[in-house]
Design a protein around this nucleic acid. Sequence first.
DNA 1: CGCTATGCCTAACAAGCGTTAGGCAGACGA
DNA 2: TCGTCTGCCTAACGCTTGTTAGGCATAGCG
Lengths: 224, 224
Amino acid sequence: MSETTGADGRRRRKTSPPKVDAPAAPAGIPATGAAKQILDATARLLREKGYEATTVRAIAQAVGIKGGSIYHHYPSKDAIVQQVVNEGVRVVHEAVEAELAALPADAGPVVRLEAAIRGHLLSSLQHSDYTSASIRAFTFLPKNVREGCRKARRDYEAIWSEIVAEAARAGLLPDDASEDAVRLLLLGAVNWAGEWYRPGGRLPIDKIASDFTRSVLRPKVSRK
Amino acid sequence: MSETTGADGRRRRKTSPPKVDAPAAPAGIPATGAAKQILDATARLLREKGYEATTVRAIAQAVGIKGGSIYHHYPSKDAIVQQVVNEGVRVVHEAVEAELAALPADAGPVVRLEAAIRGHLLSSLQHSDYTSASIRAFTFLPKNVREGCRKARRDYEAIWSEIVAEAARAGLLPDDASEDAVRLLLLGAVNWAGEWYRPGGRLPIDKIASDFTRSVLRPKVSRK
DNA sequence: CGCTATGCCTAACAAGCGTTAGGCAGACGA
DNA sequence: TCGTCTGCCTAACGCTTGTTAGGCATAGCG
């Protein structure tokens, strides 16, 4: 029962740098070709199966290469996952800002909130596996990966604070409800939508956005 | 480089029943002693780490036994998980019904909705690891486990359909928002609360329930 | 005293995990 | 034509996963 080691006589001669390659992830933005395909596949798997069940070999298979070859593009599984979730936040952030930017300059808080909700939902339910991955898989990500996108997430949530604040200033929120609660209500509802939304179902995304908005913001009429 | 198989000569002689024990989970309700401790530990781990990262050995260690001994109480990991998530749904269902039952008979839709929200939040954020486990870990559970509690979940959601319908009949919902959307908005918000709520934070549970309720239901004043 | 059942342990199984070493085929520049 | 680089492969490392076999010590009962 000799240890397998030593019996095989593996060739170990290269004294050259032990870390052979792995381009260390361009950090910045683009990612093309194989590197991009790897991110795409990881995003889809993360969205569908979560972090632990998204294996390096499954990613590789989806791309059409073998498990070990992944490491010629990224230094580790977590580096890939990190890039995917950061991209997911970036995408939804941009989508919401784009929806807001497309509005006429004099758009009121109701229209702006609806646009933000629509942008978020379109990104997470329809356009981007990255965004849905970063929402659905986030909870059970390793701590360091979660912390690696904390800033991005907080920056994104700032949009929602602002939009809710606008609604509050316009008197569209109940007097006795905190802005925090309203923001958390809305973000929770849109983030959870991935758990029940199915394309082609009774509620199209536009209708969800419209109904969510009208449920929370209604012209206040002082009665007392 | 001989295959490891065959070289070991494992003893396989017992022709007696291959499945030695595993009481097959009493299905019903109680679960006491060691079996209960195993469920408790599993619920906590599921809540904190999710399904894949909740290992049989980790459960065993939390209970103070070794990995293999788990199988003298349950036939498989999934059987334990199944029982935990079912119990989680049962607990929150009961909690919400208890809150509603504690209300005066003439309580209106606003008070009833607030009670339902409070019951759900208390169960998932404060009282029950089972409930939070069944909410947080549900998404990435194996298909058969998910389906094993589909009925229980649908039964539970029926309460919310009813409460939202009451609010609609009382004219507390915007005319152009569907009841489905309002229910999904609310359930999403309360289910997502586990992702941000921290005990002792700015928003106590009662305040969350109250603010969520007031954000969605406000006395309608026909203006048109 | 002997019997059986309980409740746990040790040790292992096969499979799968992230990761690494080294080789090799083709492209490209000198 | 030679050398280097790129992009993938095979094969393995060490470890962990869910699960099972078998043993042993105690308890209760005849």
